[in-house]
Computed example of a mutant assay.
Amino acid sequence: MKESPMKIMIIGASGTVGSAVADVLSRQHEVIRVGRTHGDEQVDITSQASVEALFAKTGKVDAIVSATGGVFFGPLASMTDEDFNQGLQDKLLGQIRLALTGQHYLNDAGSITLISGIIAQEPIVQGVNAATVNAALEGFVRAAACELPRGIRINLISPTVLSESAKAYEDFFPGFESVAAATVANAFRRSVEGIQTGRIYTVGY
């Protein structure tokens, strides 16, 4: 069954995953590409004012997709609360800001799709902040799915290390199988065009 065209906002659309998601979804839908400095629109997800300004400008959408968010990598022994707060403000609260604000700009039966990663289940060296943030995002999505009104759905994509960046990070992910960004993008499509909510879609593990 062919999907009716949707208006979809993709935050992080210039990144490796985000660009793959935009390529897949733009085949059938209207896509608004959003980045920190590139794209159709710009946003700083660490700023509530910036997130509010983005949605006020773009108006109602059918789906919000996030493929963005930074975390802190470093040894636990020297980590400070300021280091740890980087991931909390960016990948965790940044995506939660998108969901909390964006829910009011979604059409009925719209959807939100966020991103975490394998480190929530498989910790790696210097990845304490990333593991915490990813696990917290999973909890948020499961709980938010129980309360979102008007048939709005929310899911999370959790990929393993990307094939496109596996060589650069192989010392941190020894023995991990990688997955292509195009495969991860199909999981986003499943979330956006599907019917499920509160799901954690793992990709490559």
Rank of each mutant, 00 (worst) to 15 (best):
G18W: 00
G18R: 07
S19L: 04
S19E: 09
V21K: 08
A22Q: 05
A22G: 06
V24N: 09
L25H: 02
S26A: 05
R27Q: 11
R27L: 08
Q28H: 11
H29I: 00
I32K: 02
R33W: 02
R33F: 04
V34Y: 09
G35M: 10
G35Q: 14
R36F: 15
T37Y: 11
H38V: 09
H38R: 15
G39K: 11
G39T: 11
D40L: 14
D40Q: 05
E41A: 13
E41R: 15
Q42L: 08
D44V: 04
I45G: 08
S47Y: 12
S47E: 12
A49F: 03
V51P: 12
E52V: 05
A53E: 11
L54K: 12
L54I: 06
F55V: 05
A56R: 15
K57G: 06
T58K: 08
T58S: 15
G59C: 15
G59K: 14
K60Y: 13
V61M: 05
V61F: 06
D62M: 03
A63R: 01
A63P: 06
S66G: 14
S66M: 13
S66N: 14
A67E: 06
T68S: 14
G69W: 02
G69L: 01
G69Y: 02
G70W: 04
G70V: 00
V71Y: 07
V71E: 11
V71M: 10
F72H: 15
G74V: 07
G74C: 06
G74E: 08
P75H: 04
L76T: 10
A77T: 14
S78R: 05
S78M: 02
M79R: 00
M79G: 02
M79H: 01
M79Y: 00
D81I: 00
E82T: 10
D83C: 09
F84A: 09
F84H: 01
N85S: 13
N85D: 12
G87E: 08
G87H: 12
G87Y: 03
K91G: 01
L92V: 12
L92P: 02
L92F: 13
L92T: 04
L93Q: 08
I96K: 07
R97P: 02
L98R: 10
T101R: 09
G102P: 04
G102C: 00
Q103E: 11
Q103F: 06
Q103Y: 00
H104L: 04
H104N: 15
Y105N: 04
L106E: 05
D108T: 06
D108F: 01
A109S: 10
G110F: 09
S111W: 00
T113I: 07
T113A: 14
T113L: 07
L114M: 04
I115P: 06
I115W: 00
I115D: 00
S116L: 10
S116R: 01
S116C: 09
G117E: 07
I119G: 01
A120G: 08
A120K: 05
Q121S: 10
Q121F: 07
E122R: 14
P123A: 09
V125G: 05
V125Y: 01
Q126M: 11
Q126T: 04
Q126D: 14
Q126E: 13
G127I: 01
G127H: 12
G127V: 06
G127S: 04
G127Y: 00
V128R: 00
N129C: 11
N129D: 12
A130F: 02
